[in-house]
Amino acid sequence: MHQLLMSRVLLLAITACFVTACTNNKKTEDATAPSPLPTTISNWTAGIVHDSTRIPPATFAIVQDVRTARHDDHDRIVFEFSGSDIPGFHIEYVDEPVRECGSGKAVYLPGDGWLMIKFLSARMHKNGNSTVSQRDLEPNHPNLLRLTTVCDFENYVTWIASVASPNKFQVLTLKNPPRLVVDIKN
């Protein structure tokens, strides 16, 4: 009796796995399906987060939107891209002065920390027009004081998150549409 019950449980588990696998495959093919849960690229760190494996060959990603949000224990930055994936990226705290990439002009920012978020093989313009409505944000969040772009040149896009304190951050990705999320602890 016990062996028969175990066989039935095993059969139900296999069936559930098969149904789940088929359902998940169907959702990834359907562009109208709801966005899946985030994929964690890095857990909370104050170090360097780098991924150059995402650089699309002979092309570039376009930054479509940049927005921020306040949460109880962290401030969030979301970069949204056109296409099917996010580009490569390099994220780390940098020293002052922060400089614009084309002119070398110093950009003075408030706070005690500057988190550089650099996209590799990306642009924020198309046909001579900016694809992002605001390139300098002052969100007035607990830690995130200012978010400004310092580079959109030769397929590199760089943003600086000026923070009150250089606390740990984490990096996540989302799909449908592709987004890179940077959370900074308060």
Rank of each mutant, 00 (worst) to 15 (best):
F60M: 05
F60Q: 10
I62Q: 07
I62P: 00
Q64G: 08
Q64A: 13
Q64H: 13
Q64L: 10
D65Y: 13
D65H: 15
D65F: 14
D65I: 06
V66W: 03
V66Y: 03
V66G: 06
V66P: 11
R67L: 12
A69C: 00
A69H: 06
A69M: 10
R70E: 14
D72P: 02
D73H: 10
D73G: 01
H74S: 12
D75S: 08
D75A: 06
R76Q: 15
I77L: 15
V78C: 05
F79G: 07
E80A: 13
E80F: 01
F81E: 03
F81N: 03
S82G: 10
S82A: 11
G83Y: 00
G83M: 02
D85V: 01
D85M: 02
I86S: 01
P87L: 02
P87F: 04
P87I: 00
G88E: 00
F89E: 04
H90G: 01
H90S: 06
I91G: 00
E92S: 07
E92F: 03
E92Y: 05
Y93W: 04
Y93A: 00
D95S: 14
D95A: 14
E96D: 12
V98R: 02
R99E: 10
R99C: 07
R99V: 15
E100D: 10
E100V: 12
E100N: 09
C101G: 06
G102M: 13
G102Y: 09
S103L: 05
G104C: 15
G104V: 15
A106F: 11
A106S: 13
A106T: 12
P110G: 12
G111L: 09
D112V: 03
D112T: 10
G113K: 03
G113I: 06
G113D: 05
W114L: 09
W114I: 05
L115P: 05
M116I: 00
M116H: 03
I117C: 02
F119I: 04
F119T: 02
L120S: 06
S121P: 00
A122Y: 04
R123T: 11
R123H: 10
M124I: 09
M124Y: 07
K126D: 12
K126L: 15
K126Y: 14
K126V: 11
N127L: 10
G128I: 05
G128M: 04
N129Q: 15
N129K: 15
S130E: 12
S130Q: 12
V132K: 04
V132I: 13
V132E: 07
V132T: 11
S133F: 09
S133I: 13
Q134W: 04
Q134M: 11
R135W: 12
R135P: 02
D136F: 05
L137F: 11
E138K: 13
E138S: 12
